[in-house]
Computed example of a mutant assay.
Amino acid sequence: MESLTFDQLPQAVSKLQDKLNDIEKLLLENHSQPAEHDELLNIKDTAKFLNLSVPTIYSKVCRKEIPVNKQGKRLYFYKSELVNWIKSGRKKTAAEIRQEAESMLLSNRKKENRS
């Protein structure tokens, strides 16, 4: 960063003001654009999205296995919540399980050596 002289100060402040105006303009444009809202699905769309039958979805709702929003008698599902729900059921691969076991064994050995 270079030092400014007193004579250069007005020009530098003007440049800074221009940059701030540009940043403000970008922020306002970004803010005015509609944010990607989470897609809301009804029970039929949810069944189609999950490739399950509607009765299966109702069953999962009754057993509280699936994230759901209820408004009156209608059920609604947020697509992002369904994706997260699917991800939470991910099974680890054999390699991941092996890696976890090895790291646990190593940490247990380190603890035993400290004692």
Rank of each mutant, 00 (worst) to 15 (best):
F6Y: 13
P10N: 04
Q11D: 10
V13M: 13
S14Q: 01
L16A: 07
L16Q: 10
Q17D: 08
D18P: 00
D18G: 01
D18I: 01
K19L: 07
L20Y: 03
N21T: 03
D22K: 02
I23A: 03
E24S: 09
L27M: 08
E29L: 00
E29K: 00
N30K: 09
P34L: 06
E36K: 07
H37V: 08
D38R: 00
L40I: 14
L41P: 12
N42H: 13
I43N: 02
I43T: 15
T46A: 15
A47V: 14
L50R: 11
S53C: 03
P55H: 09
P55T: 03
I57V: 15
C62I: 13
R63F: 01
K64R: 13
K64P: 02
K73G: 14
K73F: 10
K73S: 13
K73V: 10
L75A: 04
Y76D: 09
F77C: 12
L82K: 06
I86Y: 02
I86N: 01
I86P: 00
S88K: 13
R90C: 07
K91W: 04
K92P: 02
A94P: 09
E96G: 03
R98W: 04
R98M: 07
E102L: 14
S103T: 10
L106Q: 15
K110R: 13
E112K: 12
E112V: 03
N113K: 12
N113H: 08
